[in-house]
Design a protein around this nucleic acid. Structure first.
Lengths: 344, 344
DNA sequence: TCAGGCTCCGTTAGCGGTAACATAGCGCAA
DNA sequence: TTGCGCTATGTTACCGCTAACGGAGCCTGA
């Protein structure tokens, strides 16, 4: 099985092989394969035939070096496994697909040093642009992005200093809005549950905004609980159980994301708790999963699809004559009350 | 905002800039930055300082062309948003991280033509290896992989013809096993629910194996239902409702994946159906999500983490002296009965 | 004292394409 | 017939880096 088959070439194919097989110069082959410049129909056909027959695959490394152009866009995100970034990617791809640009993903696991390393690696391939989640980066990462000479779009968040362009929502405001809606519905004894991660700056900003709004209304969080790793749904159950045991008079549970919120909702329903009468719940993100729950969790959609699309549009335009220039785009999430907040 | 800042260089930095700034040859700078060859500690320090001060980022395109080596491994998967591939990626990364190799992901959305295009694009960057989901590919894709002269590992499935190496489970056998367990538990009127996708070959193989085992026991599926797009959890609810309405005497619901199975489970519990007494349920994949459900759904874990790890090990070893050679590794999924199959 | 073997660093020649320019061949109007 | 302009193709010079080799300077032991 390890022996090369008879069809396996001893040496990788190059333009020269195709040019010899079709009797034209390498340059002409190059023109045919890139659809660039004038080539007669007859020659084109001959070249394509030879290329296909040989199974030639162009070497983009050489091509990129010679042309100083790379059709890659680096996308740097904290995680792939939480339902939020796959949708951002969908948005990015939907726009990039029609431009010849191609996304390349790097994952940081919410670690700033890892983000820096991933960024360095990406920039070393000289991409046409970078889309990166968040506004918080190491000093070195900021410097690299500033120097890179390519469009940089920071996504998801706009509460902070932008390097070049940004597309996102204000998480602080989102937290405030949710708090105000909860208070307006008459809830008074509110608990918070979220991730332990010190580097999830957006979750932190939401909580900041949330608490600020509580304070303005003369209130404060009655209880809070953090988790770290494991199945979010299960953690949501466990934290909710712990909080309700510890503080039985709680009347609202605010979750930093929908997954743990869903776990909490399932727990409350299991326990026969009156939702939203006795206890209200809310999460954040507006993930599709919620549609299948027994009751629709209150949440705020984070505009993930549109964020991806807008970011990709900015990158794409900068590689064209229709350059949109650097810009900061704020999107506005919509509160979806679902069935877990009292309505009047 | 579109004006270049003062720190932005007019021209991209090259090794020459660093070499001039540190007073040594480009070759020496190259050696320092790659940690290769002998350089005195003093010189090394000087070069690193200059490099950092300038904010130099090496050009891997030029490096790869000159050295004929690329530290990239292409990973081609059908989807990123279904909980199964993120875990495979985790396995791949965990192994590759210590090797200097780096995964680059491409997504096909279960479309063979798209897979071919993604593969072509990847091979044009001359990666050190390719990990690709499934054994079914277009003729052109198979030819490309055969010619590429790099290690190719097909993952997830081993029921079919392997190009080079493979790591996976037998989905046909998995389907059979589940059917046998269900029958052994005394269920007799079984329905199936799954995706409509004609190109999800692994789901199809599971169903084939499942039906084959039923036939051998003189049985056949009583009902079946397929879905397409949308929230899997919600579709699971809807399909389950439809099936139970249409065939009220059903006593077992077999789902092609855990997500729709979870939706079905939630529906049954909502309806007050006795699970697993009156109706049993089972899914496939062993996703973490299930831990947070009110009841643990019966499932089979697909060895996703280990598949990723083993595949990465094969690629890594082929780039070393410890070459493992081409191989086909079969993994064996374990049936997790959970709480939705009657136990005796 | 000097051959031999280090350590450290420089020089040369590509890697496989593409931009930019050069040129051959042709049709056609004057 | 000449010359202009066009189309179709070839030639040349890199792109930024690294493999391979070369060689200067120094240390060592006989």
């Amino acid at each position: 099985m390890t022996k090369p088959t008879s069809t396996e070439p001893r040496r990788a194919l190059t333009l020269r092989d195709v040019s010899e097989a079709s009797g034209v110069s390498e340059m002409t082959v190059s023109r045919v394969l890139r659809n660039r410049g004038d080539v007669s129909a007859a020659t084109r056909e001959r070249v394509l035939q030879a290329s296909r027959a040989l199974g030639y695959v162009p070497n983009k490394i050489a091509g990129a070096l010679a042309s100083q152009r790379v059709n890659l866009v680096g996308v740097i995100i904290p995680s792939m496994s939480n339902m939020v970034f796959p949708e951002v990617m969908t948005g990015i791809s939907s726009v990039l697909d029609s431009t010849g640009l191609q996304p390349v993903v790097g994952v940081t696991n919410y670690l700033p040093d890892r983000e820096e390393a991933v960024l360095y690696e990406m920039l070393s391939w000289r991409p046409s642009g970078v889309i990166i989640a968040g506004l918080e980066h190491t000093a070195a990462a900021r410097a690299m992005m500033g120097q890179a000479g390519i469009p940089i779009v920071e996504i998801m968040d706009i509460d902070g200093q932008v390097i070049d362009s940004a597309v996102g929502i204000s998480h602080r405001r989102a937290g405030r809005q949710m708090a105000e809606a909860i208070i307006a519905s008459g809830y008074r004894r509110i608990a918070f549950m979220g991730t332990q991660m010190p580097n999830d700056f957006r979750a932190k900003k939401r909580l900041d905004g949330f608490e600020e709004a509580l304070r303005r209304n003369g209130m404060a969080l009655v209880d809070r609980e953090f988790y770290d790793g494991g199945s979010a749904l299960l953690k949501g159950r466990e934290m909710t159980a712990a909080v309700l045991r510890r503080s039985p008079d709680i009347d609202f549970l605010y979750y930093s994301n929908d997954m743990i919120g869903a776990g909490g909702l399932l727990y409350c329903l299991d326990q026969g708790i009156d939702v939203p009468g006795k206890v209200g719940l809310a999460g954040f993100n507006g993930v599709e999963l919620l549609d299948g729950l027994p009751r629709r969790l209150a949440t705020m959609d984070a505009c993930r699809l549109e964020i991806g699309q807008r970011a990709a549009q900015i990158i794409a335009s900068r590689n064209q004559t229709t350059d949109l220039g650097a810009q900061v785009i704020e999107l506005f999430p919509i509160l979806q009350p679902g069935d877990t907040i009292r309505q009047f």
